[in-house]
């Protein structure tokens, strides 16, 4: 196919491959909702009758709600704290000429690649040596470490991409730095802030490895699931619980996309 546009020509095998890859990504996860509506105790074929019993059973489990509340509490706190910490840090890294910028950024992004296990045990050692009891606070502290890099890597491009001449214009017109930030910079980075809040919340909400070491007597939702996996009779209701978490996570991500779209044109509109 001698094309006038050689790099944009459709490539059917590649498209098929990408489709197959995507199917493979989803296949295992989709069995969770499938079997959550199956009346059998075991997740196996052939499927038995359709049932909502496992969801009903979930409703009667008090500890599930307690765990959900714990996870929400930790997730929201961690999302806000790590985003609030990340905004000035990302601004400094994107805008200011700072000696040692590379190493600082590297250090801040380090938790992305260091195994969670290391942070888990290291924090456990510190906290126990200091005599601090394990609680949702220690889990939250662990989560902030791993959420900060996500927040910074989302916000950094926002600051780098934002139009600096608008800020300069604002400064020239007599706004001080504080108001320039709130009226010019902040609207530009708002989609990034929203995305950061959402992403860090989701990371914390789903996090298990660090929570495993730093949880006290109050389990987060993933900890609850882990603890319940030992009991075969609770397996189907775990499938139901997992299905609900899947739906919520998917909904959150799609909502965040909507938000990002809505906010995208905002700064342009305001100035016109």
């Amino acid at each position: 196919m001698a094309a006038t546009e050689p790099f944009h020509s459709p490539n059917r095998p590649l498209a098929l491959y990408a489709l197959g890859f995507t199917l493979f990504l989803y296949a295992p996860i989709l069995f969770i909702p499938l079997f959550s509506f199956n009346s059998g105790l075991y997740a196996r074929f052939p499927l038995q009758d359709f049932t909502l019993a496992w969801y009903a059973e979930l409703w009667t489990r008090g500890p599930v709600f307690a765990a959900l509340q714990n996870s929400l509490q930790v997730g929201l706190t961690v999302a806000v704290i790590s985003t609030v910490l990340a905004v000035p840090a990302a601004k400094a890294l994107a805008r200011y000429r700072i000696p040692g910028k590379g190493p600082i950024l590297g250090f801040m992004l380090l938790p992305l690649v260091v195994p969670g296990l290391i942070f888990g045990v290291a924090l456990l050692v510190l906290v126990s040596r200091l005599g601090i009891p394990l609680s949702l606070w220690t889990v939250g502290l662990g989560h902030i470490i791993i959420c900060l890099p996500f927040a910074i890597s989302i916000l950094l491009p926002r600051f780098e991409g934002a139009n600096r001449s608008l800020e300069e214009a604002s400064a020239d017109l007599g706004e001080n730095a504080w108001w320039t930030f709130w009226r010019v910079t902040f609207p530009t980075i708002l989609p990034g802030v929203m995305a950061s809040l959402l992403l860090t919340f989701t990371v914390s909400f789903d996090e298990f490895i660090i929570a495993f070491f730093l949880s006290g007597t109050d389990p987060t939702l993933p900890m609850y699931i882990w603890n319940q996996l030992r009991f075969p009779q609770s397996f189907p209701s775990l499938l139901a619980l997992s299905t609900l978490i899947l739906v919520v996570s998917f909904g959150l991500v799609l909502a965040s996309l909507r938000l990002a779209r809505l906010n995208r044109d905002l700064p342009g509109r305001k100035t016109s």
Binding site: F35, D206, I225, L246, F250, V253
Partner: peptide, 15 residues
């Protein structure tokens, strides 16, 4: 799929 819990994805493989 990666916005879902890591634990859950492993759990799915167990299923």
């Amino acid at each position: 799929p990666f916005w879902t819990s890591y634990l859950m994805r492993i759990f799915a493989w167990r299923v």
